[in-house]
């Protein structure tokens, strides 16, 4: 049994079927990729896996234990972390607070009504550590909105990392990034893969094929192909799509 497994997921909105019998398995310590055209259901799949949407049918398991039907906050506390395709930060807060709030040691203090936050050196150090990993330590005390687009994407990942997750879901981490920022991100993912199990949705095929151990292709709410990057390059579905061409070039 895989580290994180989803079996026969179905999800529809009204009469629109978005996920149709999706089964996915992610192994511990691997980078798994998910690709597919716009509107294929990739983000919806992440929403279902992380508890934002309830599946109509199907099972989700983390380390052999069912997490289907749990709320996002429960699933998060079990060690599942994610970033968002559309950026989702605490914009009024400074950078370091975005990360701090996601630290497990902050969460255990959530019912402290009179305790300090920013004068707590343990919390500040832990958050600075995380910011260091995503290259934002120097911007720690600036407002989240003052960051550049690329830095905000990095902060998205930092917030997800702060939870010290068992598994990390990244929804199109390179979207909107220039080539240099994309290279930095690839280096970051390479460093992270030593410690984390990662699943990422990506449109940038070069990026994905370079980093992923296994890739699943989703189309029309179904998994139409699965395999290692090398296997997929030989797959006729992938070859036929324009996306595949780019990766082969």
């Amino acid at each position: 049994m895989a580290f994180f497994e989803a079996r026969n997921l179905h999800k529809r909105f009204g009469s629109r079927v978005v996920l149709e019998n999706i089964s996915l398995a992610f192994e511990r310590g691997q980078v798994s990729g998910i690709m597919g055209p716009n509107g294929a259901g990739k983000t919806t799949c992440f929403h279902v896996l992380t508890g934002l949407h309830q599946p109509d049918r199907g099972e989700i398991e983390l380390e052999g234990k069912s997490i289907s039907g749990l709320s996002p906050q429960r699933i998060a506390t079990l060690g599942v972390s994610r970033s968002f395709q559309i950026m989702n930060l605490f914009d009024d807060s400074v950078v370091i607070e975005n990360v701090m709030l996601a630290l497990p040691e902050f969460r255990t203090r959530r019912l402290s009504f009179l305790g300090g936050v920013f004068d707590d050196t343990k919390l500040v150090d832990a958050a600075t550590d995380v910011l260091d990993q995503v290259g934002l330590a120097a911007r720690a005390w600036e407002k989240a909105t003052s960051l550049s687009y690329g830095e905000r994407r990095a902060l998205e990942i930092g917030v997800a990392l702060a939870a010290r997750p068992k598994i990390l879901f990244l929804d199109e981490p390179t979207s909107g990034l220039g080539s240099e920022a994309t290279r930095n991100l690839a280096a970051l993912v390479r460093r992270l893969r030593e410690h984390y199990t990662i699943v990422m949705i990506e449109h940038d095929m070069r990026f994905l094929f370079e980093l992923a151990d296994r890739i699943s292709v989703i189309h029309w709410g179904q998994v139409i192909a699965e395999g290692t990057p090398a296997e997929l390059q030989a797959n006729k579905w992938v070859r036929r799509s324009a996306l595949g061409e780019a990766a082969l070039a």
Binding site: S71, P72, Q73, F90, E97, L101, S112, F113, G115
Partner: peptide, 20 residues
Amino acid sequence: SPFGRVLQAIRQNETRARFA
């Protein structure tokens, strides 16, 4: 306090707070 900061985080972005 931690409680107060979480409260403010919820005001800013409820979804993100849940995922934290």
